[in-house]
């Protein structure tokens, strides 16, 4: 039997971010940041232009600071591999409002599509399970993506999903690149104008 064709990353991210409400999104360095922007630039997106390996820990800090709001870390296999220890850090804290979704194309897309560890069978969803995530799944169909979208908004976390996607090189859809702008608009959308006066 032929394996099913892999999912298209932009369709996956549009489905995950449909009717997002107050969902806060940390989008990891590279294509996940472009995907999140393609689905619609939003003040509650924090797209990363650097800090490779830090997306999960960043999502954790945000989830702990805002326990009544939902946080999605949307990142790539290469970015996650650089910070795998942070899965263990999340597993100790067990934030109920955090979801980590890895768009796994098994390649380092920004640097010339070199294969990543997942191309050799390294199983990120098993690693998350072993690190104490409340649920961890391998996603290969759009039906599973729809279920995952609902879980991101309502299920008890921390959640982890590894979505197998095609290794397509797509048109860049770039978010703003001024970090202070991204930070200030995020904090204003979350905290209100009073956020600018915090010290």
């Amino acid at each position: 039997m032929q394996p099913a064709p892999k999912l298209e990353r932009r369709a996956v991210v549009r489905a995950l971010l449909a009717d997002r409400g107050e969902l806060m999104v940390i989008a990891g360095l590279g294509a996940p940041a472009w995907d999140a922007t393609d689905a619609g630039d939003h003040p509650l997106n924090f797209p990363l232009w650097g800090g490779m390996g830090g997306a999960v820990a960043m999502g954790l800090g945000l989830a702990l600071a805002q326990p009544d709001r939902r946080v999605l870390v949307l990142t790539g296999d290469g970015e996650l591999l650089m910070g795998m220890g942070s899965l263990a850090t999340v597993g100790v804290q067990r934030p109920h409002n955090l979801a980590v979704v890895v768009l796994d194309n098994e390649h380092y897309g920004e640097t010339g599509m070199q294969p990543s560890h997942t191309a050799f069978g390294i199983d990120l969803s098993a690693a998350a399970k072993a690190c104490g995530f409340a649920a961890s799944s391998l996603v290969t169909t759009m039906q599973q993506v729809a279920t995952l979208r609902a879980d991101i908004h309502g299920a008890d976390g921390p959640l982890f999903a590894q979505i197998k996607i095609a290794a397509d090189k797509l048109t860049l859809v770039l978010p703003p690149r001024d970090g202070t702008h991204l930070k200030n608009r995020f904090r204003e959308a979350l905290l209100g104008k009073v956020g600018h006066f915090q010290r």
């Binding site: 960043m58 989830a63 904090r187 905290l191």
Partner: peptide
């Protein structure tokens, strides 16, 4: 380095 990233998320959240 996780602590540096954690601090970014924490500050985004207030």
């Amino acid at each position: 380095e996780e602590g540096v990233a954690l601090a970014v998320g924490a500050w985004l959240g207030g």
